[in-house]
């Protein structure tokens, strides 16, 4: 009896003490970055043996969770403001923020010809225009800005439906419930070009997507390694492949 306890206790201690052969990084990631993040995670695992577990959501919602003690080690936001605030509120590692991707807003409509997207928008011959929540999702704010520059804010106000994040916005369009909407280029990179209208970059403020290492992640070498990996050539190629520009790495 005593002996078996001792053996059991020893086994538990051994488990606790042995260095983990592969660490798991927990990352909170803005919904628009879902697909590249998954590929980046796989590439990171292939290179280091460490895995990354992603939690996708709206940047605002993820920030709220981090501010309430969610144990994310890495935060890949869809804007620069939230990671800066993570640091300012003492929840992130000083100096760890950097721009990992620069987002592009596009208009997407699976059933319309968007060769001239501005004209389609202005023609106003649709019932629902989907955007992400402009108060929490940077792509939503960018969409609102684009509509304002085109002078369509009032004309389409009654037709806007708001996805809780950019993934839901795409879901509204793909399910056919909204005819068109503003999403991230990365989400529709493999769609036929007539279904996607690239909004001129000067029509909206550039969407700098920043990453930050949280206080939780500061102690985890694997989390640091993942952020370093994001700055490397291999990662930048993946990020560009999905329709993002990449920053200077600072």
């Amino acid at each position: 009896m005593c002996r078996s306890f001792a053996v059991y206790g020893f086994a538990v201690l051994t488990l606790l003490a042995s260095p983990a052969p592969a660490a798991d990084v927990s990352a909170a990631v803005a919904a628009n970055f879902t697909r590249p993040a998954e590929e980046l995670g796989a590439a990171f695992t292939a290179r280091t043996g460490n895995t990354v577990t992603f939690s996708f959501g709206a940047t605002g919602q993820l920030f709220t969770q981090i501010s309430q003690g969610a144990p994310f080690e890495v935060f890949l936001a869809a804007d620069a403001a939230r990671p800066a605030r993570v640091v300012a509120e003492g929840l992130g590692a000083e100096g760890s923020t950097f721009t990992y991707a620069i987002g592009r807003v596009v208009l997407y409509a699976p059933t319309l010809d968007l060769t001239d997207g501005a004209a389609v928008l202005a023609a106003n011959a649709y019932q629902h225009l989907a955007i992400a929540d402009p108060k929490t999702a940077p792509y939503g704010a960018a969409a609102v800005e684009v509509l304002a520059r085109l002078g369509l804010s009032d004309a389409v106000a009654a037709k806007l439906v708001t996805g809780e994040n950019i993934s839901q916005t795409l879901q509204f369009i793909d399910s056919g419930n909204a005819e068109l909407g503003f999403v991230a280029l990365s989400q529709v990179i493999d769609k036929p070009s007539t279904q996607v209208w690239w909004v001129p970059a000067e029509d909206y403020p550039s969407i700098l997507q920043d990453a930050v290492l949280t206080k939780v992640g500061e102690a985890d070498p694997a989390a640091r390694a993942f952020l370093e990996f994001l700055k490397g050539e291999e990662a930048r190629a993946i990020i560009e492949k999905y329709g993002y520009a990449v920053g200077t790495g600072d």
Partner: peptide, 24 residues
Amino acid sequence: LLAFGPNGPGGPLAALWGARTLAF
């Protein structure tokens, strides 16, 4: 969401009052 859209039964139903979908 699927049923309410133009490809589900909701589309024709919504068409009765000129809408495309029952969602939203």
